[in-house]
Each structure stands twice: as structure tokens, then as C-alpha cells.
Computed example of a mutant assay.
Amino acid sequence: MKCALVTGGSRGIGKAICKQLAQDSDYHILINYNSNETAALETKKDIEALGNTAEIIQFNVANAEQVKTALNTWQEQNKEALIEVLVNNAGITKDGLFMWMPAEDWHDVVNTSLHGFYNVTNHLIQKMLRNRYGRIINVASVSGVKGTAGQTNYSAAKGALVAATKALAQEVAKRKITVNAVAPGFIKSDMTANLDEKELKSMIPVNRFGEPEEVAYAVSFLASKKASYITGEVLNINGGIYS
């Protein structure tokens, strides 16, 4: 059984990615979630309605022990299964001006976006290397490419993720493992629900927020065999706000 694991896959961009992979591939979809089991089960139901298979897997990407235990337990229960595609999507924001930013807000955001990438990818990459095939797609952000005021913590975490993508891509390319990132701009989701779309869309050349599906299409392509000559790349999906 060949599988695709999407971290933070229960809502928003993660959910759209799970559904798109289910539509475009034969992968059994592993929907990772941290706390919202109801949303994860809804995503599973959506995937099954598309005629594919899925299961939910709970762990906090920032917690190395949890990641290890959950993935090892899953692997023991599914001895023949192989995770070929990993989408590191889990991330949180705790916005605020840097001069007033509590240490906790800095560490929480970096732990989820950056250390979460390490915890999950490092655990799975040995098997990909042995199998000589893999697709790793990291969900970065326009903030990590151009920086966003009020998001120094998030920009730092996602900027580091972009650099890690480029470095890791060079290490594993010979084993037919590609490592790419997508950098979404303003996308309609829980994360942007509190933003004033009317005010902000004037900054965006295409004059609207993006849909989660518009990120998912690109991730699904990068996860496919068609993208085998693309690695170390960062694809901006932002309506032209930064190019």
C-alpha cells in the first residue's frame, strides 16, 4: 500500500491537499491532525466519497516523541505500507509586533512550522532513501519569501523552511526523492478568516484571495511522477503579490 501523509490535513489548505491527492492519485491518504478529530473525520469522509481510501492519524508535529510513537505504531500495524509522499503543511500563526512578542509565541510558531518539518521528515526519509523514491512538499508562505510585518516569528519559520527545502533537495536527489516548497499568499482559510479581505485584495494584482484548491493543484502536481525533474524549487502561489 502506497501512502501520502499530509500534516495538518484536517482543515483549510491541508484538507484541500488531501482531497486533491485522493482525486489525482491512487495513494491511501493519511490525514494528520493535532486536536480537531471531527474535522479530520470529515476530510476522511470527503476522500471516501471521491472513491479513494484514507485514515486519520493524530500527533502534534512539534512533539518529536509523539511523531515517533504515532508513525512507528502505524507502521507496525501496516507492515507492507510505504509513505511515498509527505506534505509538511502543519503550521500556526501567533502574530504580533516583534518588540512585544512573548518568547512563547516565537517558540510555538517555530516549533510547529520548522521543528515539525524536521520531526516528521527526518523520521520518514530513511525509508524513502532505501526505497529510492519519494516526494516531499513543504508548505511555506509568502511571509517566508518576502517577510510580513507583524509575523517575524512566522516569517522566520517559513523562511527557514524554504532554505531547508533547497538544501535537502540537493542531498537526496540521486535517490529519486524530490523536495519542493509552495509559498501561498492570502488564501481563504481559518488562518486568514480575521483579515479584512476587502482592504487587502487591492494589494494583490489578481484582486482576490486564493482558494485552498489553488494551492492543492500545485502540491498534487509536485507529488506526481510528472514533476520528477523539479526539485529544490519554491513555487509562489499568491496572485502576483510577490514575484
Score class of each variant (00 low, 15 high):
R130I: 00
V87T: 05
N131D: 04
I92W: 07
A183C: 08
I92K: 02
I125Y: 10
G150F: 07
V182H: 00
T121I: 01
P102C: 04
K166C: 05
E65H: 15
V182G: 00
N52S: 14
V87N: 04
F98L: 12
I92S: 06
D108Q: 15
V145K: 05
N78K: 01
L129K: 13
G147T: 10
A156P: 14
A81K: 06
Q126G: 12
D108A: 15
V67L: 07
G96L: 02
G96S: 01
V139M: 04
K188H: 15
K174P: 01
I136S: 07
N153T: 13
T178E: 02
G51D: 06
A62W: 00
G147D: 13
Q66T: 02
Q75I: 08
P102L: 03
V145H: 04
I83F: 09
V87R: 04
A183V: 06
F186Y: 14
S155L: 08
G159S: 15
N119M: 05
T53M: 11
T121L: 01
D95I: 05
A90I: 06
V85L: 13
D105L: 06
K174Y: 09
A169M: 11
Q170H: 10
V61R: 00
L97N: 06
I57H: 04
L129S: 11
N89G: 03
